[in-house]
């Protein structure tokens, strides 16, 4: 039994003018304590939606199907009331654009202490001293906790957001583009911090990003999402060296490389619209090695190596050979 298990997760969003967008289509993955897992893909492919769904944080216009289990307990089955006790105690999150993750009217330390007091992890005094410890842990002087968020720099706020996420000693930390708005130096510090925390505290980490080098640097395993589906997952080294899905291969090829070619390659076209059912392979229009089968038949994830799956008809072809 994994620490976190996400099975066949689907998310649909109601649209204002009728119809639905199938934003996440059957995502499944598992995570053990201390593991670091990357979720990569272009903008609009369902990464953020997936992890918001894990905590039951999607807006009311979303319908969710599937199971999310923490240590075997299905947390989403009873709606808001059933997830609430798990939030921040078992599964916490560092938000995309954590710049605005703090309430401008409360001090940073107050906001870190708040969930501890609320979940009964600590009383007021303990929570306050623990908030100071957490700030020190992420490299912010404890005294700065008495300040308001607008007095923090971007990097400090991001680190404070991590400190806040650790308040109730969660087992799982979801980090949504935690380094996107930061400069490279601060980005490196934040990634180092996340890696160290997961090593020291046995924290399971899901890192959502479109930045492949960040995943390569931080995570052991990763899943690649395209058009709301996981199209390939496996150890990061395998994805990089022996990608089984053309999208993964092209995605890595599109990453600028210090020693590689001078010209950056791109994948022409854009991600598919998700408001209607896609008959064949969603990547078909942009694929560089399409086959006849790809037009009409939707590929499913199949095993392509140890701990490595991909959803591409070409793999079945090779398997048959």
């Amino acid at each position: 039994m994994s620490l976190l298990e996400c099975r066949d997760l689907h998310v649909w969003f109601d649209q204002t003018h009728g119809g639905q967008v199938h934003a996440v289509n059957g995502a499944s993955f598992g995570l053990d304590a201390g593991q670091r897992f990357g979720l990569v893909g272009e903008s609009g492919c369902g990464k953020t939606t997936t992890i918001l769904a894990l905590m039951g944080l999607l807006p009311p216009t979303a319908s969710v199907a599937g199971e999310v289990r923490i240590n075997g307990t299905d947390i989403l089955c009873g709606g808001e009331e059933s997830v609430r006790p798990f939030r921040w105690r078992d599964i916490a999150m560092v938000f995309q654009g954590a710049m605005n993750a703090f309430n401008p009217m409360k001090t940073v330390a107050w906001q870190i202490a708040e969930p501890m007091v609320y979940h009964g992890v600590a009383d007021r005094a303990e929570a306050r001293s623990r908030a100071s410890e957490l700030l020190e842990l992420v490299g912010i002087p404890a005294a700065a906790g008495k300040r308001y968020p607008h007095e923090f720099s971007g990097g400090m706020r991001q680190r404070a957001a991590i400190a806040m996420a650790l308040a109730c000693e969660p087992k799982i930390l979801l980090a949504d583009e935690p380094t996107t708005a930061l400069d490279v130096m601060v980005q490196a510090q934040v990634l180092e911090l996340l890696t160290r925390l997961s090593d020291e505290l046995g924290l399971a980490l899901i890192l959502v990003t479109h930045d492949l080098p960040v995943v390569a640097q931080t995570c052991e395993r990763a899943a690649v999402m395209y058009g709301g589906e996981i199209v390939e997952d496996g150890p990061v080294a395998d994805l990089y060296h022996a990608a089984s899905h053309p999208y993964t291969r092209l995605l890595f090829a599109a990453t600028p490389d210090l020693y590689g070619e001078e010209r950056i390659t791109t994948i022409p076209g854009g991600p598919p619209r998700l408001d209607s059912v896609i008959a064949g392979c969603p990547f078909r229009p942009r694929c560089d090695v399409p086959m006849e089968r790809c037009d009409g038949e939707h590929p499913t994830l199949s095993i392509t190596g140890p701990d490595h799956r991909a959803a591409c008809h070409r793999n079945e072809l090779q398997g048959a050979k």
């Binding site: 609430r84 006790p85 921040w88 938000f95 654009g97 609320y118």
Partner: peptide, 12 residues
């Protein structure tokens, strides 16, 4: 605002 989402994520 994002901080309201944060407050929900905190389980409040």
């Amino acid at each position: 605002e994002d901080y309201v989402l944060t407050a929900r994520a905190k389980g409040l």
